[in-house]
Amino acid sequence: MHLNTEYFEELWLSDNQKKEPTVELWDFRAEEYNLALSTEDAQLTRQEKVQSLIDREIINAESTVLDIGCGSGQFAVELAKKTKKVVGLDFSEKMLSYASANATAAELKNTEFIHSDWDGYQCTEPFDLVIASMSPAIDKPKHLYKMMDCSRGFCYLSSFVERHSSLKEKLYRLTDQTYLSQFNKLNFIFNILWTRGIFPELTYETGIHQRVFPLKTAQGIFTREMSVLDKPEQVSHIHQYLEDIAENEVVTESLQQRKGELIWKQS
């Protein structure tokens, strides 16, 4: 079998079984998400990541950056401290409100945040670096190619390779759904790039991550992540189970996860 670009494109398209997060979910999660990424450890990790990009001459003080699915903007803010301009793009207005507030708090004047999904965004001029950091926006080949077309320098893309949650597994069973713990997107992208003569750097990071929510917040988040808001019986099952396992009105989810990171030169 000849493994060409079309082969991996078709694999990727046929593998799209996971439900992508909705705008409503990200709007609901915006406050919690912003707080989770505002810790001292999270900030230090971003600073190290940006410094690594500088050390490898991927960005400098004159670089322009496009952040696809910027969320609450912490990565965009850290990049903007070291570059000429950063444009952040997200389809959640609430996420963008936090992004703007974070940029203002950092006294930055070189950030722009745009309310749009990736399909609707028009790239009028190329950027020196285009990033999609843990972003669900790149979920099919045409999204990857658009990302590449918007870059005149480098592309950076990170995604889960594997993520397992015993709590989420239980909730899937409660709602008669199949738990999907494997994430194949990064493998498809890596192979697509190779068949096009592009040889990216690939690195992995493995660890355990904990999400901690007040009970009511957990009930809201998990019913949305499980896409059962329109199914009252399943909502009731989730709410009751989370109430049963909560300790002092707090729900903790432990995730065993592996992240992959691709960086490649586009031009």
Rank of each mutant, 00 (worst) to 15 (best):
M1D: 08
H2Y: 10
E9P: 07
K18E: 13
E20P: 00
P21F: 06
D27T: 08
D27I: 09
A30K: 10
Y33I: 05
N34D: 15
L35W: 06
L37V: 07
L37M: 12
E40I: 11
E40H: 10
D41L: 14
Q43V: 12
T45H: 11
E48N: 12
K49S: 12
I54V: 13
E57Q: 12
A61Y: 08
T64F: 04
L66N: 04
G73H: 05
Q74D: 13
V77Q: 07
E78L: 06
L79W: 06
K81E: 11
T83S: 13
K85S: 09
D90H: 07
K94G: 02
S97L: 11
A101C: 04
A106I: 00
L108W: 10
N110L: 08
F113E: 03
I114Y: 03
H115M: 12
H115P: 01
S116R: 10
D119R: 07
T124P: 01
P126K: 11
V130G: 01
V130H: 02
M134Q: 14
P136N: 10
H143F: 07
D149V: 01
S151Y: 06
G153N: 05
F154N: 11
F154Q: 01
V161C: 14
V161A: 12
E162K: 11
E162V: 01
S166V: 11
L171E: 00
R173S: 15
N184A: 11
K185P: 00
I189H: 01
F190D: 05
N191A: 06
T195Q: 15
T195W: 08
R196G: 01
F199Q: 02
P200A: 03
P200Y: 05
Y204C: 02
Y204N: 03
I208R: 13
H209N: 10
L215N: 09
E225A: 00
E225G: 01
S227F: 13
D230H: 15
K231C: 08
K231A: 10
Q240L: 09
Y241M: 04
A246Y: 04
V250A: 03
V250L: 07
T252W: 04
S254F: 09
L255T: 05
Q256R: 14
K259R: 15
W264L: 03
W264R: 07
K265C: 09
